[in-house]
Design a protein around this nucleic acid. Structure first.
Lengths: 200, 200
DNA sequence: GGAACTGGATAGCCCATGGCTCTCATCAAC
DNA sequence: GTTGATGAGAGCCATGGGCTATCCAGTTCC
């Protein structure tokens, strides 16, 4: 007796598989993210993965790009909501890391899985470089607007420092939320932003 | 025909297996760190792993503790070499992250592998919490000594901020050394240290 | 309206790999 | 030499990824 199935459009199926992959990576880590686990989470048979993607590696890469895009969109939304003041916009970008949906242990778990693939998968490495470059370019634009008069070299270094602080706080909070609070992280970022805009 | 073998002490064998595990994690990621790969790297047969450890999970955990200890010792050595001045000691601790043997892409790859196991392995999670707590306690001691007059709450927050900045810079530099230099990272940390000691 | 067609979807097979165990060889201490 | 721990290596069972034969819902064409 063969189970009935529902015919879905390609986009719906692809997205379902991507969502299932992110869920598996977050919940069980990269080791347990197998074709069967992904397809079970997506509610489809295992053969369908190969039908829509080259293989499990390609699906993971697509998931990386999808997750990266969702984070990027959350950042953009925060900037737009902040209004026109350049400092408010910079602040909104930085602080968005410490609110949903970015501040999420599952998102970190997914992200760590991607990092762990960079060494062994050139495509993932390329995607990572691309995503990070875009993020840093955006931050440099916000810093330059909020602190006019800085040279490009100064802007670049400030952006590097702010990115590192934000990423470090985000990483450590998600790994262990008991050691400090999101509010404390926001406070630290606010101070660092002040220093970055005040100093040379 | 069975191959000849050399009889080694338990400590030597354990360390060889731990080193081989770290090498596999760094070079090929957690997915390719199998019993056979580890034992091949260590130059022993696959049965030996079970002989000396409960299983591959226990070996990975032992590797985590070993790598953590090596980093911790490098930090301690840097502090001792810095002399008696509290600010120099704090600086030495922070800057040691941007020199060998800590600033090493292989070490990050190993570390990422550990992070990726935190979700699925409670023992790894416990080891991680322990290692990070020890590191942060040490940093709090250095901050308190370098900036007397700070309350424990102030010291704690400063230590959290400095740890996050250092970890973020370390992470991003190891993931992609082309985006900025180690000297720039050191400069950013030096500035942040100055702010931490100057402000309240 | 019905038959043939298209291609999404399934189940299951094949082979590779993985972790671990078991047997047996080897060596060093006594 | 005896002995017992150390080590090698084959093998077992489970799981994984990819592939294929098959099936079926919706479309097309007469």
């Amino acid at each position: 007796m063969r189970a009935k199935f529902v015919r879905e459009s390609a986009d719906v199926r692809r997205q379902a598989l991507i969502d299932a992959t992110a869920k598996c990576l977050a919940e069980k880590g990269v080791a347990a993210t197998s074709v069967r686990a992904i397809c079970a989470a997506a509610g489809v048979s295992s053969g369908l993965l190969t039908h829509y993607f080259e293989g499990v590696d390609a699906l993971i890469l697509a998931t990386y790009r999808d997750v990266g895009q969702r984070v990027s969109q959350a950042m953009d939304a925060a900037i737009v909501a902040a209004g026109d003041d350049p400092q408010d916009r910079l602040r909104a970008f930085l602080q968005a890391n410490f609110r949903a949906p970015v501040l999420d242990a599952d998102l970190l778990a997914t992200w760590i899985a991607f990092w762990s693939l960079i060494k062994s998968n050139a495509d993932v490495a390329a995607a990572h470089a691309e995503i990070y470059a875009a993020s840093r370019t955006q931050l440099e634009g916000l810093v330059a607007a909020a602190g006019p008069g800085f040279s490009p070299a100064q802007v670049r270094l400030k952006a590097i420092g702010l990115t590192a602080l934000v990423d470090g706080l985000w990483l450590e909070y998600c790994l262990d939320p008991t050691s400090f609070s999101a509010a404390e992280a926001q406070q630290l970022v606010e101070r660092a932003m002040g220093h970055a805009l005040r100093d040379q």
